[in-house]
Design a protein around this nucleic acid. Structure first.
Lengths: 141, 141
DNA sequence: ATAACTGCAAACGTTTTGCCAGCAT
DNA sequence: ATGCTGGCAAAACGTTTGCAGTTAT
Protein backbone atom coordinates (compact mmCIF):
# COMPACT_ATOMS: atom_id res chain seq x y z
CA UNK A 1 0.00 0.00 0.00
CA UNK A 2 1.92 2.98 -1.28
CA UNK A 3 1.30 6.57 -0.31
CA UNK A 4 -0.55 7.19 -3.56
CA UNK A 5 -2.75 4.15 -3.15
CA UNK A 6 -3.53 5.09 0.42
CA UNK A 7 -4.53 8.61 -0.52
CA UNK A 8 -6.65 7.37 -3.44
CA UNK A 9 -8.52 4.99 -1.16
CA UNK A 10 -8.98 7.66 1.49
CA UNK A 11 -10.37 10.08 -1.04
CA UNK A 12 -12.79 7.57 -2.52
CA UNK A 13 -13.96 6.77 0.99
CA UNK A 14 -14.46 10.44 1.70
CA UNK A 15 -16.48 11.02 -1.45
CA UNK A 16 -19.97 9.67 -1.15
CA UNK A 17 -20.77 10.72 -4.67
CA UNK A 18 -19.68 7.60 -6.57
CA UNK A 19 -16.92 9.53 -8.28
CA UNK A 20 -15.52 8.96 -11.73
CA UNK A 21 -11.81 8.30 -12.14
CA UNK A 22 -11.32 11.89 -13.11
CA UNK A 23 -13.05 13.17 -10.02
CA UNK A 24 -10.87 10.98 -7.87
CA UNK A 25 -7.85 12.29 -9.73
CA UNK A 26 -8.82 15.88 -8.99
CA UNK A 27 -9.36 15.13 -5.32
CA UNK A 28 -6.09 13.25 -4.97
CA UNK A 29 -4.19 15.95 -6.79
CA UNK A 30 -5.00 18.40 -4.02
CA UNK A 31 -2.95 16.28 -1.68
CA UNK A 32 -0.43 14.83 -4.13
CA UNK A 33 -0.08 17.45 -6.85
CA UNK A 34 2.28 15.36 -8.97
CA UNK A 35 0.14 12.24 -9.12
CA UNK A 36 -0.74 11.10 -12.62
CA UNK A 37 -4.07 10.02 -14.00
CA UNK A 38 -2.54 6.71 -14.99
CA UNK A 39 -1.63 6.01 -11.39
CA UNK A 40 -5.16 6.80 -10.31
CA UNK A 41 -6.62 4.40 -12.86
CA UNK A 42 -4.12 1.71 -11.97
CA UNK A 43 -4.81 2.00 -8.28
CA UNK A 44 -8.56 2.19 -8.60
CA UNK A 45 -8.30 -1.04 -10.50
CA UNK A 46 -6.08 -2.66 -7.88
CA UNK A 47 -8.26 -1.44 -5.04
CA UNK A 48 -11.37 -2.85 -6.66
CA UNK A 49 -9.69 -6.19 -7.29
CA UNK A 50 -8.60 -6.32 -3.67
CA UNK A 51 -12.15 -5.56 -2.60
CA UNK A 52 -11.56 -2.16 -1.03
CA UNK A 53 -13.86 -0.42 -3.47
CA UNK A 54 -16.26 -1.39 -6.19
CA UNK A 55 -16.51 -0.46 -9.81
CA UNK A 56 -20.05 0.44 -10.71
CA UNK A 57 -21.37 -1.30 -13.78
CA UNK A 58 -18.54 -2.64 -15.80
CA UNK A 59 -20.85 -5.02 -17.61
CA UNK A 60 -20.83 -3.39 -21.02
CA UNK A 61 -17.48 -2.25 -22.35
CA UNK A 62 -19.24 -1.46 -25.60
CA UNK A 63 -22.67 -0.21 -26.35
CA UNK A 64 -25.07 -2.86 -27.56
CA UNK A 65 -28.32 -2.65 -29.44
CA UNK A 66 -31.53 -4.59 -29.19
CA UNK A 67 -34.38 -4.58 -31.65
CA UNK A 68 -36.71 -5.81 -28.93
CA UNK A 69 -37.93 -2.61 -27.32
CA UNK A 70 -40.24 -4.34 -24.86
CA UNK A 71 -39.24 -4.40 -21.21
CA UNK A 72 -37.15 -7.46 -20.65
CA UNK A 73 -33.96 -8.44 -18.92
CA UNK A 74 -30.55 -9.69 -19.98
CA UNK A 75 -27.85 -12.05 -18.87
CA UNK A 76 -24.35 -10.87 -19.73
CA UNK A 77 -21.36 -13.16 -19.99
CA UNK A 78 -18.50 -11.68 -18.01
CA UNK A 79 -15.90 -13.41 -20.15
CA UNK A 80 -16.97 -12.94 -23.76
CA UNK A 81 -19.53 -10.17 -23.35
CA UNK A 82 -22.32 -12.14 -24.99
CA UNK A 83 -25.79 -10.90 -24.08
CA UNK A 84 -28.88 -13.09 -23.97
CA UNK A 85 -32.47 -12.41 -23.16
CA UNK A 86 -34.01 -13.86 -20.06
CA UNK A 87 -37.25 -15.51 -21.06
CA UNK A 88 -39.14 -14.37 -17.99
CA UNK A 89 -41.61 -11.68 -17.33
CA UNK A 90 -40.15 -8.90 -15.23
CA UNK A 91 -41.28 -9.11 -11.58
CA UNK A 92 -43.18 -5.96 -12.26
CA UNK A 93 -45.02 -5.68 -8.96
CA UNK A 94 -41.91 -5.86 -6.85
CA UNK A 95 -40.07 -3.36 -9.01
CA UNK A 96 -42.96 -0.94 -9.16
CA UNK A 97 -43.16 -1.16 -5.39
CA UNK A 98 -39.45 -0.42 -5.12
CA UNK A 99 -39.74 2.51 -7.49
CA UNK A 100 -42.46 4.01 -5.34
CA UNK A 101 -40.36 3.74 -2.23
CA UNK A 102 -37.41 5.33 -4.00
CA UNK A 103 -39.50 8.27 -5.09
CA UNK A 104 -40.67 8.81 -1.52
CA UNK A 105 -37.23 8.69 0.00
CA UNK A 106 -34.83 10.09 -2.54
CA UNK A 107 -36.88 12.76 -4.32
CA UNK A 108 -35.68 11.36 -7.61
CA UNK A 109 -38.12 11.11 -10.47
CA UNK A 110 -37.87 7.52 -11.56
CA UNK A 111 -38.24 6.87 -15.26
CA UNK A 112 -37.17 3.27 -15.47
CA UNK A 113 -34.70 0.69 -14.35
CA UNK A 114 -32.11 -1.77 -15.54
CA UNK A 115 -31.87 -5.24 -14.16
CA UNK A 116 -29.20 -7.45 -15.59
CA UNK A 117 -27.68 -10.69 -14.48
CA UNK A 118 -23.97 -11.31 -14.79
CA UNK A 119 -22.36 -14.66 -15.23
CA UNK A 120 -20.76 -17.11 -17.58
CA UNK A 121 -22.37 -18.23 -20.79
CA UNK A 122 -22.43 -21.97 -21.50
CA UNK A 123 -19.52 -21.73 -23.95
CA UNK A 124 -17.20 -19.78 -21.64
CA UNK A 125 -18.26 -21.90 -18.71
CA UNK A 126 -17.00 -25.04 -20.42
CA UNK A 127 -13.96 -23.79 -22.26
CA UNK A 128 -10.65 -25.38 -21.32
CA UNK A 129 -12.31 -27.27 -18.48
CA UNK A 130 -11.28 -24.74 -15.90
CA UNK A 131 -12.93 -24.76 -12.53
CA UNK A 132 -15.45 -22.11 -11.67
CA UNK A 133 -13.04 -20.61 -9.21
CA UNK A 134 -10.37 -20.24 -11.86
CA UNK A 135 -12.90 -18.65 -14.18
CA UNK A 136 -13.77 -16.08 -11.58
CA UNK A 137 -10.11 -15.34 -11.01
CA UNK A 138 -9.70 -14.89 -14.75
CA UNK A 139 -12.55 -12.43 -14.85
CA UNK A 140 -10.97 -10.39 -12.11
CA UNK A 141 -7.53 -10.30 -13.72
CA UNK B 1 -36.05 6.54 -43.69
CA UNK B 2 -33.13 6.32 -46.06
CA UNK B 3 -31.81 3.17 -47.64
CA UNK B 4 -28.93 3.01 -45.17
CA UNK B 5 -31.17 3.50 -42.16
CA UNK B 6 -33.54 0.86 -43.44
CA UNK B 7 -30.76 -1.68 -43.93
CA UNK B 8 -29.29 -0.92 -40.51
CA UNK B 9 -32.65 -1.49 -38.86
CA UNK B 10 -33.25 -4.68 -40.83
CA UNK B 11 -29.87 -6.05 -39.85
CA UNK B 12 -30.33 -5.26 -36.17
CA UNK B 13 -33.70 -6.97 -36.32
CA UNK B 14 -32.13 -10.01 -37.94
CA UNK B 15 -29.40 -10.28 -35.33
CA UNK B 16 -30.68 -11.68 -32.10
CA UNK B 17 -27.28 -11.34 -30.49
CA UNK B 18 -27.55 -7.81 -29.11
CA UNK B 19 -24.83 -6.62 -31.46
CA UNK B 20 -22.27 -3.90 -30.88
CA UNK B 21 -22.09 -1.00 -33.32
CA UNK B 22 -19.15 -2.65 -35.00
CA UNK B 23 -21.01 -5.89 -35.51
CA UNK B 24 -23.88 -4.00 -37.07
CA UNK B 25 -21.41 -2.18 -39.28
CA UNK B 26 -19.94 -5.47 -40.50
CA UNK B 27 -23.38 -6.89 -41.25
CA UNK B 28 -24.53 -3.77 -43.06
CA UNK B 29 -21.35 -3.59 -45.07
CA UNK B 30 -22.17 -6.90 -46.71
CA UNK B 31 -25.16 -5.24 -48.29
CA UNK B 32 -23.89 -1.67 -48.57
CA UNK B 33 -20.12 -1.97 -48.97
CA UNK B 34 -19.53 1.78 -49.00
CA UNK B 35 -21.36 2.55 -45.78
CA UNK B 36 -19.26 4.23 -43.10
CA UNK B 37 -19.01 3.46 -39.42
CA UNK B 38 -20.07 7.01 -38.65
CA UNK B 39 -23.31 6.50 -40.51
CA UNK B 40 -23.98 3.32 -38.59
CA UNK B 41 -23.46 5.09 -35.27
CA UNK B 42 -25.58 8.03 -36.32
CA UNK B 43 -28.42 5.84 -37.44
CA UNK B 44 -28.31 3.50 -34.47
CA UNK B 45 -28.67 6.61 -32.39
CA UNK B 46 -31.57 7.93 -34.43
CA UNK B 47 -33.30 4.55 -34.47
CA UNK B 48 -33.04 4.26 -30.72
CA UNK B 49 -34.39 7.76 -30.24
CA UNK B 50 -37.30 6.96 -32.50
CA UNK B 51 -37.98 3.83 -30.52
CA UNK B 52 -37.20 1.27 -33.20
CA UNK B 53 -34.36 -0.24 -31.23
CA UNK B 54 -32.93 0.08 -27.77
CA UNK B 55 -29.49 0.86 -26.54
CA UNK B 56 -28.54 -1.53 -23.81
CA UNK B 57 -27.27 0.15 -20.71
CA UNK B 58 -26.36 3.66 -21.51
CA UNK B 59 -26.49 4.61 -17.85
CA UNK B 60 -22.78 4.98 -17.19
CA UNK B 61 -20.76 6.78 -19.85
CA UNK B 62 -17.88 6.66 -17.41
CA UNK B 63 -16.80 4.14 -14.87
CA UNK B 64 -17.67 5.06 -11.32
CA UNK B 65 -16.30 3.90 -8.02
CA UNK B 66 -17.94 3.16 -4.72
CA UNK B 67 -16.22 2.60 -1.40
CA UNK B 68 -19.29 0.77 -0.14
CA UNK B 69 -18.69 -2.80 -1.23
CA UNK B 70 -21.86 -4.18 0.30
CA UNK B 71 -24.70 -5.20 -2.00
CA UNK B 72 -26.87 -2.20 -2.57
CA UNK B 73 -28.59 -0.40 -5.40
CA UNK B 74 -28.24 2.93 -7.14
CA UNK B 75 -30.36 5.61 -8.74
CA UNK B 76 -28.70 7.32 -11.67
CA UNK B 77 -29.66 10.77 -12.90
CA UNK B 78 -30.11 10.63 -16.66
CA UNK B 79 -29.28 14.31 -17.04
CA UNK B 80 -26.21 14.95 -14.91
CA UNK B 81 -25.05 11.40 -14.27
CA UNK B 82 -25.17 11.73 -10.52
CA UNK B 83 -25.41 8.43 -8.69
CA UNK B 84 -27.05 7.98 -5.31
CA UNK B 85 -27.55 5.01 -3.09
CA UNK B 86 -31.01 3.65 -2.52
CA UNK B 87 -31.50 3.26 1.18
CA UNK B 88 -33.37 -0.02 0.90
CA UNK B 89 -32.45 -3.59 1.41
CA UNK B 90 -32.28 -5.49 -1.86
CA UNK B 91 -35.38 -7.65 -2.45
CA UNK B 92 -33.08 -10.59 -2.07
CA UNK B 93 -35.67 -13.35 -2.14
CA UNK B 94 -37.19 -12.28 -5.42
CA UNK B 95 -33.82 -11.85 -7.07
CA UNK B 96 -32.48 -15.16 -5.80
CA UNK B 97 -35.61 -16.79 -7.13
CA UNK B 98 -35.07 -15.15 -10.50
CA UNK B 99 -31.43 -16.22 -10.58
CA UNK B 100 -32.47 -19.81 -9.99
CA UNK B 101 -34.91 -19.72 -12.84
CA UNK B 102 -32.31 -18.21 -15.15
CA UNK B 103 -29.84 -20.95 -14.34
CA UNK B 104 -32.43 -23.57 -15.15
CA UNK B 105 -33.43 -22.10 -18.46
CA UNK B 106 -30.37 -20.45 -19.91
CA UNK B 107 -27.51 -22.66 -18.76
CA UNK B 108 -25.65 -19.56 -17.71
CA UNK B 109 -23.73 -19.62 -14.47
CA UNK B 110 -25.00 -16.60 -12.61
CA UNK B 111 -22.48 -14.78 -10.47
CA UNK B 112 -24.41 -11.65 -9.62
CA UNK B 113 -26.70 -8.96 -10.87
CA UNK B 114 -27.06 -5.24 -11.30
CA UNK B 115 -30.25 -3.43 -10.54
CA UNK B 116 -30.26 0.28 -11.04
CA UNK B 117 -32.99 2.84 -11.29
CA UNK B 118 -32.85 5.63 -13.83
CA UNK B 119 -34.42 9.01 -13.45
CA UNK B 120 -33.93 12.64 -12.63
CA UNK B 121 -32.19 13.84 -9.52
CA UNK B 122 -33.94 16.60 -7.52
CA UNK B 123 -31.63 19.28 -8.93
CA UNK B 124 -32.09 18.38 -12.57
CA UNK B 125 -35.77 17.80 -12.03
CA UNK B 126 -36.21 21.39 -10.94
CA UNK B 127 -33.75 23.22 -13.13
CA UNK B 128 -35.22 25.85 -15.41
CA UNK B 129 -38.74 24.84 -14.45
CA UNK B 130 -39.16 22.64 -17.48
CA UNK B 131 -41.97 20.17 -17.54
CA UNK B 132 -41.23 16.52 -17.07
CA UNK B 133 -42.06 15.87 -20.69
CA UNK B 134 -39.55 18.44 -21.83
CA UNK B 135 -36.95 16.91 -19.58
CA UNK B 136 -37.50 13.53 -21.11
CA UNK B 137 -37.20 15.03 -24.56
CA UNK B 138 -33.96 16.68 -23.50
CA UNK B 139 -32.59 13.37 -22.28
CA UNK B 140 -33.35 11.78 -25.61
CA UNK B 141 -31.73 14.53 -27.64
C1' DA C 1 18.90 -7.22 -5.56
C1' DT C 2 14.47 -7.48 -6.49
C1' DA C 3 9.92 -6.54 -7.10
C1' DA C 4 6.40 -3.36 -7.14
C1' DC C 5 5.38 1.15 -8.20
C1' DT C 6 5.47 5.95 -10.08
C1' DG C 7 5.05 9.90 -13.59
C1' DC C 8 4.83 10.84 -18.11
C1' DA C 9 3.51 10.38 -22.64
C1' DA C 10 1.94 7.80 -26.19
C1' DA C 11 -1.33 4.48 -27.75
C1' DC C 12 -5.69 2.39 -27.82
C1' DG C 13 -10.62 1.37 -28.91
C1' DT C 14 -15.01 3.34 -29.11
C1' DT C 15 -17.81 7.00 -30.24
C1' DT C 16 -18.69 11.69 -31.97
C1' DT C 17 -17.99 15.54 -35.01
C1' DG C 18 -16.95 18.77 -38.94
C1' DC C 19 -16.98 19.14 -43.54
C1' DC C 20 -18.71 19.13 -48.01
C1' DA C 21 -21.42 16.88 -51.46
C1' DG C 22 -25.81 14.74 -52.69
C1' DC C 23 -30.67 13.82 -52.19
C1' DA C 24 -35.35 14.69 -51.03
C1' DT C 25 -38.92 17.86 -49.83
C1' DA D 1 -33.88 26.71 -51.86
C1' DT D 2 -33.82 24.29 -47.70
C1' DG D 3 -32.82 20.90 -44.69
C1' DC D 4 -31.71 16.16 -43.67
C1' DT D 5 -28.33 12.73 -44.84
C1' DG D 6 -24.18 10.29 -46.45
C1' DG D 7 -19.11 9.27 -46.71
C1' DC D 8 -14.83 10.34 -45.08
C1' DA D 9 -11.43 11.77 -42.00
C1' DA D 10 -10.20 13.84 -37.94
C1' DA D 11 -11.09 14.66 -33.26
C1' DA D 12 -12.65 13.55 -28.79
C1' DC D 13 -13.17 10.82 -24.93
C1' DG D 14 -12.14 7.53 -21.35
C1' DT D 15 -8.94 4.21 -20.42
C1' DT D 16 -4.69 1.41 -20.83
C1' DT D 17 0.14 0.66 -21.63
C1' DG D 18 5.34 1.06 -22.37
C1' DC D 19 9.12 2.94 -20.49
C1' DA D 20 12.66 4.57 -17.62
C1' DG D 21 13.45 6.04 -13.15
C1' DT D 22 12.10 5.52 -8.03
C1' DT D 23 10.85 3.46 -3.85
C1' DA D 24 10.39 -0.06 -0.56
C1' DT D 25 11.47 -4.38 0.97
Amino acid sequence: MTQQRKVILEEVRKMHTHPTADEVYEAVRKRLPKVSLGTVYRNLDILSKEGYIRKIDQAYPQMRFDSNTEDHYHVVCMVCGRVDDIPFEPPKDELDELEKRIIQVSKYTILGHNLEFLGLCPVCRKSRGDSLEEKIKEINS
